[in-house]
């Protein structure tokens, strides 16, 4: 079964982070990611780590959920760390063997880089865990809306609508795939055995009905939208209006303070 595949891994705990206006949340998190890469030294990374940790705790999403997201990139972290350990020279030599020399500077640099990557993953996880895909596309649409001044307003709306529809239909399609797979297995389809060619061929009985039903669904959706007088972005209002609250105010100040302190560290 392919149901356990989730995209937009929203995890609702109704925390203050969930309640933040998604437009501001998106900008704040992008700002934090940028400043994670601008942080010049361990003091800066320390400040950012504390900030990320605070946000994680406030989100009330179990810490294990965050750790799970780190798993796929452990290899990358280790690789960058190793590269830094061996290729950064300077500082006192701690250890030397053949062509490898480990210096204190290299170790520090490795730890620095690794922390950066981890922080970046963690803070982006905060965004995906606390923001529904719909909120996210709304935020993107809203943030791109200035493009209407150069005549791209309709394009932005169409893009956002396409993203929303695509995200909406992912669970439907996985459901459908499950059903069609079961139905073909009931007719003796064997998808687990055989060579690559045989397996590819065994996919046809699944892909073709899936394609047909997607086209059918798309048609139905288009008709339903027509029936409700959908004419694109012009004059369209929202049911859920995004509106900043007191928490957003605090979150903005929080982000500004963090970013300012990093700028301060860089300058002095």
């Amino acid at each position: 079964m392919i149901k356990n595949f989730t995209l937009g891994q929203y995890f609702n705990t109704a925390s203050v982070i969930h309640k933040l206006d998604s437009r501001f949340k998106l900008v704040e998190i992008i700002a934090l990611i940028v400043f994670i890469f601008l942080a010049p030294n361990f003091v800066g990374i320390g400040i950012l780590s504390a900030a990320v940790l605070l946000v994680i705790l406030l989100s009330k999403v179990p810490v294990t959920m965050y750790l799970r997201n780190l798993k796929p990139i452990i290899a990358i972290i280790i690789l960058t760390a190793l590269l830094n350990i061996f290729y950064v020279s300077g500082g006192t030599v701690l250890f030397s063997w053949w062509i490898f020399t480990v210096t204190s500077e290299g170790l520090l640099k490795a730890a620095f880089m690794a922390t950066r990557i981890v922080l970046m993953i963690l803070i982006s996880s905060v965004l995906t865990y606390t923001t529904t895909p719909t909120e996210l596309t709304d935020a993107i649409e809203s943030l791109l809306s200035p493009l209407r001044f150069i005549g791209l307003g309709e394009a932005v709306h169409t893009l956002a609508m396409m993203m929303t529809i695509a995200l909406r239909f992912i669970p439907t399609l996985t459901d459908e795939t499950d059903k069609i797979m079961s139905a073909q297995k009931a007719r003796g389809a064997d998808m687990e055995n055989g060579g690559i060619f045989k397996r590819l061929k065994a996919l046809m009985p699944i892909l073709i009905p899936l394609l047909f039903s997607s086209v059918r669904r798309a048609n139905e959706l288009a008709e339903a939208m027509d029936c409700r007088c959908y004419t694109g972005g012009k004059g369209r209002t929202r049911m859920k209006k995004l509106s900043p609250t007191f928490y957003d105010f605090i979150a903005i100040i929080f982000t500004v303070v963090i970013c300012a302190s990093i700028i301060f560290l860089r300058i002095f």
């Binding site: 459908e176 059903k179 069609i180 079961s182 139905a183 073909q184 009931a186 007719r187 003796g188 389809a189 064997d190 046809m204 009985p205 699944i206 073709i208 009905p209 047909f212 039903s213």
Partner: peptide, 26 residues
């Protein structure tokens, strides 16, 4: 032999004849 709810959505062959033949072929 299990016939699913709305089994018409599982048809995939070029002709109805071939589709009926899918199970027996397997």
């Amino acid at each position: 032999g299990l016939v699913f709810q709305y089994p018409e959505y599982q048809l995939f062959e070029e002709t109805a004849y071939k589709d009926i033949a899918y199970g027996p072929k397997n």
